[in-house]
Design a protein around this nucleic acid. Structure first.
Length: 566
RNA sequence: CGGGCUGUGGCGCAGCUUGGUUAGCGCGCUUGACUGGGGGUCAAGAUGUCGGGAGUUCGAAUCUCCCCAGCCCGACCA
């Protein structure tokens, strides 16, 4: 292609409201433009990169036996009601009605739709199956942000596996894990797998692929010594043992005038490790108490996962007062029978603890948790923090901010049962098919590459997804220089290189700056100065390497380098 | 949803406090000339519902009210 005839609207200044690096560079480089919050137009350059990312994903999923589909993005409400997720999904799903007043939704994911197609499977002999599509998803995110990193409309590759048993699911899950690792390698992304919460997808377990990146939104706990890595929504750690005194025969009220915080109570003589923190939560409309140790933080996703809650929020001080009789700072669970109580495992067996007495300015001491509090559910609720000891090997854990680049789920039979996806096994008995689902966002991965591959001049795309693999920069538009450049351009094209000819009537500095900004990995500069010696110049974007090549060998050399790097 | 900030040519901004000619500047764009290996110089131009609506006023980018949009933090989110 000739740059002079292309639409590549590069900007001198990035828009002021583009905060994330990838957002600024993708806009500045003429890859994307925002339509409105969370919705971006892919310009020709951006769409080329997007398609190259999609091609890599497609290639690797095909390699493990995936069959490509294309399913609708607009769904009838009924199919979502059938799985129970019409209500469960809440506000994340865009909903609309058609002219006959039928309720519809825009697809946020496709378990339901693929499962409904899969109901035509009838025999174990047809299994395993691996189906996928690369298609638009709509999610009404509360806060789209950071350019392409979190949007409301995006393309996702989602695949779905169907097996006769758990062993089959395990194999498909494992082959996806390996395919994802290859995809991230080809994209140049340093992704690693972590244990994750399955959230609204359900299922028994899931692995997220994370890329360390300050623009990300997930906190990951990793052990630098063993292979433990988990999303903070799932992570656990080893706690220092706490030795309790026997305490009192019964809790004892004591006055704590003006004391409203853990820290203040600590100064009054009760170490945070010996306090019970009582949080009033509203879980799907029901007021529930969540208890953690005074120095611990509640992780709300853990609470949601453990209790099956869909919508969770902290209660207002008024709600706390109405249900417990005191305002936050003096709340406790001792003697509470009317509310469901969920407590963190770290409180199990603890004695001689201090907690609020449900009367402002009063606390209890000498509380034995299991004796004095009517706990309905013991579970892991506390959020791990960096500096704690690894559960496996006791090494000090680290916390890393990451972008979630992919997520794979073992679903089990939840959806196959809802949609009647069952087959006859070898004994002629009907068995529900075991499903898995596997997602990877195309645009987010594109942005994550930009987020992790750039310098002060622009993006450093890897050859695998660069909008063009090479650019031939013509420095002077006289007949001789242009002819030399064009023959080089044609020679590269004939070797299958995705090459751009910069034939614009612009100054050298402008052409160099643009090529660097949009991140073309190889630049061949053709100018009269070099041609006088029978040479052109090769500039390698990623390494900064700059060298002269004979005109006769230049195309060959560059094509070989590119093909080797793909 | 809570908090903060911002809306002025394609992009980046000034002007608003204290209302007053044709609303400025830089970049970019057009034409011409000189130039031509890292965003060149000079000259001449074009491009604006000042986010929208209502109000106050002789007069509103500027003051008041309502609304909308975008960004950031938090909540939330597969």
């Amino acid at each position: 292609m000739r740059w002079s005839s292309l639409f590549i609207p590069t900007l001198r200044d990035a828009p002021a409201d583009a905060d994330a690096v990838s957002h600024a560079l993708l806009v500045k480089g003429g890859f994307i433009r925002q339509l409105h919050a969370g919705h971006y137009s892919m310009l020709p350059l951006g769409w080329k990169v997007h398609q190259k990312v999609a091609a890599i994903v497609r290639d690797e999923i095909n390699a493990i036996g995936g069959q490509e589909f294309l399913l609708p993005t607009m769904h009838p409400a009924t199919i979502w009601q059938q799985s129970g997720r019409w209500d469960k999904m809440g506000e994340i799903m865009f909903r609309l009605t058609d002219r006959r007043n039928n309720e519809m939704a825009l697809g946020i994911t496709h378990e339901e739709i693929f499962a409904s197609v899969a109901s035509e499977l009838t025999s174990y002999k047809e299994l395993p199956q691996l189906w996928y599509h690369i298609q638009t998803k709509f999610r009404d995110e509360a806060r789209p942000k950071a350019g392409l990193l979190r949007v409301r409309e995006f393309h996702m590759k989602d695949s779905y596996s169907f097996d006769i048993d758990d062993e089959g699911l395990d194999r498909q899950f494992e082959s996806h894990r390996e395919a994802y690792i290859k995809i991230f390698e080809r994209l140049g992304l340093p992704a690693f797998g972590v244990q994750a919460s399955s959230g609204a997808m359900g299922g028994s377990s899931s692995v997220e692929f994370m890329v360390p990146c300050s623009a990300g939104e997930d906190e990951v706990i990793v052990c630098p010594s063993c292979d433990y890595a988990a999303n903070i929504e799932k992570a656990t750690s080893k706690l220092e043992p706490v030795v309790d005194e026997a305490g009192l025969d019964a809790p004892e009220r004591f006055a704590t005038p003006g004391i409203r915080t853990i820290a203040a109570l600590e100064e009054a003589g009760a170490p945070a490790t010996r306090q019970i923190k009582t949080m009033v939560m509203v879980a799907d409309g029901e007021v529930v108490l969540a208890l953690v140790r005074g120095d611990h933080q509640l992780n709300t996703q853990k609470f949601i996962d453990a209790t099956g809650t869909i919508e969770l929020r902290p209660a207002t001080p008024e709600e706390a007062k109405a249900n417990l009789g005191a305002t936050p700072g003096s709340l406790g669970a001792v003697g509470v029978d009317s509310l469901r109580i969920v407590a963190d495992s770290a409180l199990q067996g603890r004695t001689d603890m201090t907690t609020g007495a449900n009367e402002d300015d009063w606390h209890y001491r000498g509380v034995s948790v299991e004796r004095d509090i009517n706990v309905d559910q013991w579970t892991d609720l506390r959020e791990v923090s960096a500096g704690e000891a690894c559960f496996n090997c006791s090494t000090t854990l680290e916390q890393i901010r990451c972008v979630e680049a992919g997520h794979i789920f073992k679903l089990g039979t939840e959806y196959s049962e809802a949609f009647g996806v069952s087959v006859s096994d070898s004994d002629g008995k009907q068995r529900p098919v075991v499903m898995g689902s596997y997602g990877i966002g195309i645009g987010r991965n594109m942005a994550t590459v930009a987020e992790t591959h750039y310098d002060d001049k622009g993006i450093l795309w890897p050859v695998s997804i660069a909008p063009y693999e090479a650019v031939v920069t013509v420095l002077k538009l006289d007949a001789e220089t242009l002819a030399a450049a064009e023959s080089l351009y044609e020679a590269l094209r004939s070797r299958g290189v995705d090459v751009l000819l910069d034939d614009r009537d612009a100054r050298a500095g402008v052409k160099f700056a643009d090529a660097e900004l949009i991140g073309i990995p190889y630049r061949i500069t053709v100018g009269p100065r070099g041609l006088a010696d029978g040479e052109v110049e090769l500039a390698v974007r990623a390494t900064g390497e700059d060298k002269r090549l004979g005109v006769d060998v230049a195309a060959e050399t560059v094509a070989d380098a590119i093909i080797a790097e793909r």
